[in-house]
Design a protein around this nucleic acid. Structure first.
Length: 483
DNA sequence: TTAGGGTTAG
């Protein structure tokens, strides 16, 4: 049986008072979906440009929303951007350029990135520090950290002067991509030039904590003190997280007690860190105890604290108890966010309660838009349960939603379509593969291999050949399929 | 978009 949205019974939440609930998020303006679908269905650049030019109500905000909506369809997003670039009345904002550059960078289309940067410059819109933050992040996350350093150091040649914040945000990008050592070296070289501050050091300490290198993080802490910089609450919370992350629960707890003893005003972030830290390693009772004690200590939990507790219960206790906490937060007037719903939905899927998970996805729409993770979780569990039809139905429904499928969505579906080695399944897997390439995603070698093999085994030589001919779109093919 | 807490399977 297929899931039809109108068959789903909506569960009403208990005890929600209208007093505590702000108005529901505004649904997107109808023209946004209409225009986005118009763009998605347009055949060629020329007719798209004509259609868009005939509309005159372009505002920067509408353009930003459409670029966001087309986020997971990079080629269409860029087509749209280019078609509007020669509009007689509208001209792109600096932010629209940043979006376009981010989209091109995500597709690793380096030529387009630099062409857009050049156009920004001729139109005197930048590139700005934000533009550089975007491309530096993309270079680092695609493994080109050395190139990123060169770009950072040459920013001024593009008319954009580096400052302390751009330096700090670059260090942060390196640290978040597990390049703490490299960031620390850069800090040592350039701390004089940029006047490194407490944020610079906090970023590096966090980088080592992410790599579970608490001794290095403590070394950074010592160094900042030696240099006359006063650690902040963020510094301590960073180290606290570092201990728990590295599995040093005793040290973490001792550190927390030290913080209190030294009259540091521990805050909701400190408590959330501990609740999560104890919980995810299975110390559910300790997590609950801290969660219960914080109010008495004068610190109110936030939505993030509830999320930590809900995650812990889903993972190490039961989804039923997680829902008790979920209901408690509603009763107290908190508005769950997408993270909250995704946690509960994942927990329900994991417990095999798929229908209830769908109910929660529908309830979610009162508070926030479902995210790509919402769809991917449900699609994944449907696939795992062998309910491929239901997964495909939800995948189809995504066309009318706020978010388009991403690389994960395609990987999940294609790999489960390839399990049975049935001809119809393989044809669909092949079509999905072509669609994902059209949308700017490069399939992994493994996925490509699997689909091509499956097509050949099931006698679908024609589609296999077609896919082989697309190779230019996503680079080198595995050896056995090379033409 | 200058730092700290909450989503992700294998």
């Amino acid at each position: 049986m297929l899931i039809a949205p109108n068959r789903i019974v909506k569960v009403h939440r208990p005890f929600t008072t209208s007093l505590s609930k702000p108005p529901s998020p505004q649904p997107p303006p109808p023209e946004l979906t209409t225009i986005a679908n118009l763009i998605l269905s347009s055949e060629d650049q020329k007719s798209l440009a004509q259609t868009l030019h005939s509309l005159n109500q372009w505002t920067p905000n509408l353009v930003h929303s459409i670029l966001k909506r087309l986020w997971n369809h990079g080629p269409k997003a860029l087509q749209f951007f280019n078609a509007l670039d020669c509009h007689p009345l509208y001209s792109h904002s600096s932010t629209a350029f940043d979006y376009a550059i981010d989209i091109a960078a995500r597709m690793r289309d380096y030529r387009t990135i630099w062409a857009l940067m050049h156009r920004m410059r001729t139109q005197k819109l930048g590139p700005t520090r934000k533009t550089f933050a975007i491309i530096l992040e993309r270079y680092v996350s695609s493994g080109k950290a050395d190139k990123a350093v060169k770009i950072f150091l040459s920013m001024h040649e593009y008319g954009c002067q580096q400052n302390l914040s751009s330096f700090n945000s670059f260090l942060d990008v390196l640290c978040k991509s597990k390049r703490a050592e490299m960031a620390y070296k850069l800090l040592k070289i350039f701390r004089g030039r940029f006047r490194a501050d407490v944020i610079s050091y906090n970023v590096i300490a966090n980088g080592f904590c992410l790599r579970k290198q608490t001794p290095k993080a403590l070394e950074v802490l010592r160094e900042m003190i030696e240099r006359g910089l006063e650690p902040t609450l963020t510094t301590y919370n960073t180290l606290l997280m570092g201990f728990f992350r590295a599995g040093q629960l005793k040290e973490g707890w001792k550190f927390f007690l030290q913080m209190k003893k030294r009259k540091i005003d521990v805050d909701v972030v400190s408590y959330t860190t501990i609740v999560h830290g104890f919980g995810v390693v299975g110390e559910v009772e300790k997590a609950k105890k801290v969660f219960g004690e914080m109010v008495g200590a004068g610190v109110l939990p936030s939505v993030a604290t509830y999320n930590a507790m809900i995650q812990v219960l889903c993972k190490k206790d039961s989804v039923a108890n997680a829902i008790v906490i979920f209901d408690e937060m509603l009763r107290k007037g908190y508005i769950p966010n997408a993270v909250t719903y995704n946690l509960v939905i994942r927990g329900l899927c994991h417990a095999g309660k798929m229908e209830l998970a769908i109910d929660y996805m529908n309830r979610m729409k009162d508070d926030c838009e479902p995210t790509i993770q919402t769809f991917n979780v449900i699609i994944r569990y449907y696939c795992n349960d062998g309910e491929i039809e239901k997964a495909l139905e939800l995948f189809k429904d995504m066309n009318g939603e706020s978010v388009l499928p991403n690389l994960d969505t395609y990987n999940i579906l294609i790999s489960s379509m390839s399990v049975r080695k049935k001809s119809d399944d393989m044809l669909l897997a092949g079509k999905l593969l072509i669609e994902m390439v059209d949308r700017g995603y490069s399939p992994r070698k493994f996925t490509l291999n699997r689909v091509l093999n499956g097509l050949l085994v099931t006698g679908n030589q024609e589609l296999a050949k077609y896919i082989l001919r697309m190779q230019g779109k996503f680079g080198r093919l595995p050896r056995q399929f090379r033409l």
